[in-house]
């Protein structure tokens, strides 16, 4: 157990990079935990990460619900990882993120959810071709809503 925990808890002799802190906050939020404290008294270091229910951290950490290939056509639904108003076109450009026929890679942003000033990306669960867009632009969609279908490669 002690060996294992040594591997799990990184050496804390200097402050982690912002990206690492961000990753830890994501893990905390996913685990439903509120805060984490690392302390190295010898080095005079103390790191406290509180996610509480901080929206941006929580929102970005919201993993989309599992998408399973549907029986039949083998299409994979793109499901929303949070709720918000659906935005299918890039706010700065006038082009759709992923119109029907577009090729997407796994993890590509295919839509945005906007909640006031907050924007949560909706990611493609698989690589493939967008077969159908069912979400209505501007509509208030809930968590886990299927907004488009992808034909996997």
């Amino acid at each position: 157990m002690s060996n294992r925990s040594e591997q799990l808890v990184p050496h804390f002799d200097r402050l982690p990079e912002p990206e690492q802190i961000g990753q830890m906050a994501t893990w905390l939020a996913q685990a439903g935990l509120e805060s984490l404290e690392l302390c190295n008294e010898a080095a005079g270091l103390k790191l406290r990460i509180r996610v509480g229910q901080a929206v941006p951290a929580a929102a970005s950490s919201h993993a989309p619900p599992a998408s399973q290939p549907e029986a039949g056509g083998g299409l994979v639904a793109v499901k929303t990882p949070y709720f918000g108003h659906l935005c299918l076109t890039h706010p700065q450009r006038d082009t759709a993120f992923a119109p029907v026929g577009a090729k997407v890679a796994q993890g590509d942003i295919v839509a945005l959810l906007t909640l006031d000033s907050l924007q949560v990306p909706v990611l493609a669960p698989v690589a493939g071709t967008v077969a159908e867009v069912t979400g209505q632009p501007g509509a208030l969609v809930g968590y886990g809503a299927a907004i488009m279908q992808i034909q996997p490669d």
Partner: peptide, 9 residues
Amino acid sequence: DGLLLAARL
């Protein structure tokens, strides 16, 4: 926070 956002939306 989710509940408050939902109320706003």
